[in-house]
Lab assay of single mutants.
Amino acid sequence: MSSSSWLLLSLVAVTAAQSTIEEQAKTFLDKFNHEAEDLFYQSSLASWNYNTNITEENVQNMNNAGDKWSAFLKEQSTLAQMYPLQEIQNLTVKLQLQALQQNGSSVLSEDKSKRLNTILNTMSTIYSTGKVCNPDNPQECLLLEPGLNEIMANSLDYNERLWAWESWRSEVGKQLRPLYEEYVVLKNEMARANHYEDYGDYWRGDYEVNGVDGYDYSRGQLIEDVEHTFEEIKPLYEHLHAYVRAKLMNAYPSYISPIGCLPAHLLGDMWGRFWTNLYSLTVPFGQKPNIDVTDAMVDQAWDAQRIFKEAEKFFVSVGLPNMTQGFWENSMLTDPGNVQKAVCHPTAWDLGKGDFRILMCTKVTMDDFLTAHHEMGHIQYDMAYAAQPFLLRNGANEGFHEAVGEIMSLSAATPKHLKSIGLLSPDFQEDNETEINFLLKQALTIVGTLPFTYMLEKWRWMVFKGEIPKDQWMKKWWEMKREIVGVVEPVPHDETYCDPASLFHVSNDYSF
């Protein structure tokens, strides 16, 4: 037999072997998808029940369902290793196997995995149920939502704001400190077992692309791009910072340095994350009609249902689908009040099986009107990829998912749209002054938050990498806050605090 014939037969044999492996992989994935749908849905439903009704029974049910899901994933991840990716030609099959071969938290021992889940659930519970009591009246206690958040959004009393700011960190942050220390250790162990340098590197892996249509993007490039983007917006932020400082000097004349940092408790919310609520103090042309339409919403008797129905109309107007019937029947759109304790931070849920929901303790404000559009943007994205195989139902990356939500809320905030839905009067006219007011309001929300987020994530990356010793977490946190964000702590904090974890995203294990 000629050498060319042998070569042809060899190629046929290799192709047949690849085809056999690929067919086996497809069969394996079909079985996995069928089983995963049910187990993931049960786990998601148990998590939803806990988040909307925080009880010991629900946390136990959530843990049990989560353990079943984790055990299943660990088993299936091991089985998926049997299919070598280099022998799979079908890109859809390869991407699913690649996702499943990534072990995630299931790489930890059973004891450590359970401990990590306990830590995460405990931190979430402390954050959502933590109360601050009035020292003069111990029976008068406030949760973060709505009590403390209400103070931080609306109060102009310097000392009341300081009390709310400090009490939240003292009551909740200190409880979270030992848990967060354990969390860092276990998450790093999980990341390294998955061949990442640390948990920050694991997060950045979400943005990594290897040879898809000839395109590559590394975790290191992400760090470079983040640094570059921050340097680009820094001059604009510094101008905004100086303008806000001048306006705060008028409101709090004896508390603000004309050349120094801004006190952290005066920036519009509990964390200084969004400066939106400073608009009334900083509006350049106050004689113009108010483009913050909160009062109009209240006057027109809007409620949470109306807010979300208007958001749905907005999405339908640009060619996107209505929310499902189940969305309206199962979402929690208002604070249950004293009936039950719930996690009030707005979140969009894709539970699986076409079950999409939003959890939000909606208030009738323009801020929540825009947040509703943001969260519904997440749901629209979830619905758009719902037909994909189970392992591919995700956003391109976390940042893109947020961008989908944010672009919709930005569009909904324009005076033209607000006028079209009757929240600005029919005779409202846009001119240079109203446009400047609008742009300032947008800058308070968007530009003001960028250094906050950059600095927070930089601190977390450094902590996970071990570049900040545990006994210097708070020292470095406030050094970076002053240097990068231009914000100063109103009272000193020692290493018993854990100020970063006083933010939902940190205590609940979300990256930005």
Rank of each mutant, 00 (worst) to 15 (best):
F72N: 10
V59Y: 04
A46T: 12
Q60K: 03
A71H: 01
E56H: 02
E22I: 08
Q89P: 00
T20V: 08
E75W: 00
I21K: 12
N61Q: 04
M62I: 11
L73R: 05
Y83I: 05
K31G: 15
Y50V: 09
E37S: 13
D30K: 14
F72V: 12
Q24K: 15
Y83G: 15
V93E: 13
D38G: 14
Q24L: 14
Q42G: 11
Q96P: 01
K74N: 08
A46S: 07
H34G: 12
L45A: 14
L73H: 09
A65P: 13
L73Y: 10
A25W: 14
K68W: 12
I54Y: 10
K68F: 11
L73M: 09
Q102F: 03
L29N: 13
L79A: 10
Y50M: 10
Q42C: 00
K31D: 15
V59H: 01
L29I: 12
D38N: 09
N64S: 08
K74T: 08
Y50S: 10
T20I: 10
Y41V: 15
E56D: 05
F28Y: 02
S19A: 09
N63E: 11
T20P: 11
V93W: 13
Q98H: 05
N64K: 07
M82G: 01
K74E: 09
Y50E: 13
E57G: 07
K31E: 15
N64P: 13
L91A: 04
K31C: 15
T92M: 00
E75Y: 00
F28H: 15
Q96C: 10
V93D: 12
E22M: 07
S19N: 09
W69I: 00
Q76E: 05
F28Q: 15
N63H: 03
L45Y: 12
L29M: 13
Q24M: 14
L95N: 05
W69C: 00
L95C: 04
L91H: 10
E37W: 14
N64R: 01
E57K: 10
N33I: 13
T27G: 14
Q76Y: 00
Q24I: 15
D30A: 13
E57I: 01
I54S: 11
K31M: 11
N90D: 01
Q60P: 11
D30C: 12
N63R: 05
K68Q: 10
L39C: 01
K26M: 06
Y83T: 14
L39M: 03
W48E: 08
N90R: 00
K68I: 12
T20D: 10
F72D: 13
N63K: 07
H34T: 08
M62L: 10
E56N: 04
Q42D: 15
N61R: 08
F72G: 12
F40W: 04
E57H: 02
K68T: 10
T27E: 15
L45P: 13
Q102H: 09
N49L: 01
Q76A: 04
Q89A: 02
A65F: 03
E37M: 12
Q96L: 11
W48H: 06
V59R: 05
E57L: 03
W69S: 05
N90S: 00
I54D: 11
L39D: 13
I21E: 12
S19K: 11
L29G: 13
M62C: 07
Q96N: 11
D67V: 04
H34Y: 14
N49P: 11
E23Y: 00
N64Y: 09
Y41K: 15
L91Q: 04
Q76C: 01
V59F: 05
T27S: 02
F28K: 14
S19H: 06
Q89S: 01
N51R: 08
L91V: 03
D38I: 14
A25H: 14
N63D: 10
N90E: 00
F28S: 15
F28N: 14
V59C: 04
L29F: 01
T92H: 00
F28C: 15
W69L: 01
Y83E: 15
N63Y: 06
T20F: 12
Q76L: 02
S19P: 02
A65R: 00
T20H: 12
Q102A: 07
M62P: 13
N51V: 10
K31F: 03
E22T: 01
N64M: 05
A46R: 13
L79E: 15
E57N: 04
Q96K: 12
Q96Y: 08
D30L: 07
L91C: 01
N51D: 10
Q98E: 02
T92E: 00
F72S: 11
N90Q: 00
Q102N: 02
E35V: 00
E37N: 14
Q89R: 04
N33S: 02
A65E: 12
E75C: 00
L73D: 12
A25C: 06
L79D: 14
L95P: 10
A25Q: 14
M82Q: 13
D30F: 12
L29R: 08
Y41F: 15
L95K: 01
E22F: 02
D67F: 03
I21C: 12
W69N: 05
L73G: 10
T92G: 00
T20W: 15
E37G: 14
L91D: 05
E75L: 01
N51H: 04
W69G: 09
Q98D: 01
Q89W: 09
I54P: 08
E57S: 03
F72E: 13
